[in-house]
């Protein structure tokens, strides 16, 4: 029907499935992100480190290249767990920074402008809304973290052969599982903080602040009680414990057992999820 027909007309076409409706939040959020030149520029720059990594791997298997650079294989960084962990740390740091910048913009405006009643009066639930918004952060951080590092791993495996791949499969598992944990905890943290603060700049600052405050609390507990369990409050340190464990790198002195670290991260994720679910409602009810 043409736009100029101004009489009210009911719609009698078919409707999309529920799954397709949940993806609407993700599509619109991505479209908004990609409309920002600053975001696209920063996002592109984030791939500098993996490109350097790819160049190093390539050089190790290219005698002509080494000769041209007047260097030897021994002078290059060895390709082992440490190599991949270094790149993973760089990428997750960049991913976390980006998540702290874009995450609050995904939910804070909706909550601040009371848009949730409009969304939730449609045939979508709160879980669809949260999943749709989380998918944006998971997508962006995946593209920045495990996907490029796994490509580096695949490049190294391709050039070094099957025996290297079989011997270092643990690294691939480490890349995937560490990235997944970090993406989950950072995504939930940024959305939960944004849902409570509802003001983008303050929410971004609060996300950064969380890492400092949690580290300070952990250190304070360890120092005052002469203990090591204060590390359960320090998110960055917990991830560090897991990374070194997964990549078979010697552990830090005050390292917590892997099970404890995993449990602490799972509890942290659940707390953030509960915070998020509590705020993502069509209407808040003031109870008395």
């Amino acid at each position: 029907m043409a736009v100029y027909r101004r009489r009210y007309q009911a719609f009698d076409g078919g409707l999309a499935s529920r799954g397709a409706r949940a993806l609407v939040f993700t599509r619109y959020a991505f479209r908004e992100l990609l409309a920002s030149r600053l975001f696209v520029l920063f996002f592109a720059m984030c791939f500098a480190a993996p490109l350097v990594g790819a160049a190093i791997i390539y050089l190790r298997f290219n005698p002509l290249g080494l000769k041209a650079l007047q260097t030897t294989v021994n002078q290059l960084i060895p390709i082992d767990g440490n190599f991949f962990l270094r790149f993973l740390i760089i990428q997750t740091s960049l991913g976390s920074f980006l998540a702290a910048i874009i995450g609050p913009g995904l939910v804070a405006p909706d909550l601040a402008n009371n848009a949730l009643p409009l969304y939730l009066s449609r045939p979508v639930g709160r879980s669809d809304y949260i999943a749709g918004k989380l998918a944006v952060l998971v997508g962006v951080m995946s593209i920045l973290t495990w996907i490029p590092i796994m490509l580096l791993f695949a490049l190294q495996s391709g050039l070094a052969g099957w025996s290297w791949f079989a011997a270092n499969l643990r690294i691939a598992v480490g890349i995937m599982s560490c990235s997944a944990l970090w993406i989950a905890v950072v995504s939930l943290l940024t959305l939960a903080v944004a849902a409570w603060v509802r003001w983008r700049p303050i929410a971004t600052l609060s996300v950064f602040g969380y890492f400092f405050v949690s580290a300070a609390i952990g250190t304070l507990i360890n120092e005052t009680l002469d203990a090591t369990w204060g590390g359960v409050f320090n998110l960055a340190k917990l991830m560090r414990f897991l990374w070194t464990d997964f990549f078979a790198i010697p552990q830090l002195e005050d390292a917590l057992p892997t099970g404890v670290s995993l449990a602490a991260i799972a509890v942290t994720c659940l707390v953030f999820l509960a915070m998020l679910v509590r705020r993502v409602r069509a209407y808040e009810v003031v109870r008395s």
Binding site: F11, G13, L15, A16, R21, V24, Y28, L118, Y119, R122, P123, V124
Partner: peptide, 10 residues
């Protein structure tokens, strides 16, 4: 448009 899509329209 977004709300129309959420309601199930393509």
């Amino acid at each position: 448009t977004m709300l129309g899509e959420l309601a199930g329209l393509g």
